[in-house]
Design a protein around this nucleic acid. Structure first.
Length: 110
DNA sequence: GGAATGACATTTA
DNA sequence: CTAAATGCCATTC
């Protein structure tokens, strides 16, 4: 019948990215690419865009996301803030880059 | 419906 | 290795 579930589940990439981010354990970081791959997509930039809007910067640890090179992409609150947060998590950040990146890197496919 | 944007990635010079 | 240019995808105006 008329059950028109026109419920726009409009789960945007944004929401999906948050789900993955929430799966990241403390002291670990991930890359935009890993998130996109986890979604079976290559919207590397789309993922970053989702964070840029940052609808809930507190419900989601967007500061655990870095570039594939282990470099800190950026942060809506400021890259400095991101470094501080990561450092507090136990991640070593130097020269704006994550040390032992491969060690703290969290892969969703794992 | 299309143009513009962006917290990227990849390749080449 | 660093720098520049190009490509990609989704969201927003």
């Amino acid at each position: 019948m008329n059950s028109k579930p026109k419920q726009n589940n409009h789960l945007t990439f944004n929401e999906h990215c948050y789900e993955l981010l929430l799966k990241i354990p403390k002291g670990r970081v991930t890359t935009y690419k890993a998130i996109a791959q986890a979604l079976n997509c290559k919207a590397y930039q789309a993922v970053g865009n989702a964070m840029n809007q940052n609808p809930n910067p507190i419900s989601v640890p967007c500061h655990r996301v870095v570039n594939t090179d282990g470099r800190l992409g950026g942060y809506a609150f400021g890259s400095d803030r991101k470094i501080e947060l990561l450092t507090e998590e136990g991640i070593v950040v130097q020269d704006g880059k994550v040390q032992n990146f491969k060690t703290v890197f969290f892969d969703f496919t794992e």
